[in-house]
Write a protein that binds this DNA or RNA. Structure first.
Lengths: 136, 136
DNA sequence: ACAGCTTTGACTTTCATTCTCAACAAGGTC
DNA sequence: GACCTTGTTGAGAATGAAAGTCAAAGCTGT
């Protein structure tokens, strides 16, 4: 079906940087992190790799308010959602069986099919809250 | 505090086009609709107006999978979510008291504050499903 | 080592959205 | 109505994320 991806230095590097962070990161941020580490990976390659990983379900993608894509390697492959810190990007995986059921039901009751849902929670994590308080 | 917006032709035109549609539309689509109607409104003005309306809570904004912003005038000002047809953009307003409670609770239990949530449902509406079936 | 692939990266291109700034229009005032 | 002040417009340029191009470089099985 889909031939296995070759494991190249740059793909490994992207995966490593991704693994090293709990936080959701943009493609550009990851590119910079790689550069800082000394790995020179083309921006296009970062985008391609991220997309491949996303297609394979190996990273989770979400969008900021202004439409930028953020990526994060997730512990579990099963369907789940996130509670993301809007200031540092740190994320907690959550699931909501109740919500899943609710979504499917609402969809069906309106005559819609192939229901999908986007559910993300945003907040300020304890640590970031402390920092803001301190500096004011 | 915030001086009232002047009601100009172009702002009125954008509002009208918005009112005339049940569907979520991109800024570009709205701009084209205006052009078709004969109103020549600059694209920048469409964006500015849309943003002003969104800031004032008079239109709802959501993002497609690829990050494009979609706008729709909504019947009610109170917090609610949408079930959107991924093919025609038609939308149904929904609310989920259960979900609201769940979101707040999950957020708090993880030590996050200022919890906000993004919840949108996507599906294919009955009409679009019929069209697809017909043409195959 | 060799052939036949895939992948890379520097660069270009696309596309939505925002900015710039001079010309213009709303609304209040006399 | 004429006028003035200030917010608003629009054409085009600028930005910025993401995707495409293609020759050069890298894997992998033989």
């Amino acid at each position: 079906m889909n031939q296995p991806l070759r494991m190249t230095k740059q793909r490994a590097a992207v995966a490593e940087v991704l693994d090293a962070s709990d936080e959701f990161r943009s493609a550009q941020q990851l590119h910079e992190l790689l550069r800082d580490r000394g790995d020179t990976v083309g921006l296009a390659t970062v985008y391609r790799t991220l997309q491949a990983l996303a297609d394979g379900g190996d990273v989770d993608v979400l969008r900021t308010d202004d439409g930028e894509a953020l990526y994060r390697r997730c512990a579990r492959a099963e369907h789940h959602h996130h509670l993301v810190c809007r200031s540092c990007g740190r994320a907690v995986e959550i699931d909501g069986p109740t919500v899943e059921a609710w979504a499917a039901e609402v969809g069906a009751s309106q005559g819609f099919s192939d229901i999908e849902h986007t559910i993300e929670l945003w907040g300020t994590c304890a640590q970031c809250r402390a920092n803001v308080t301190k500096s004011s």
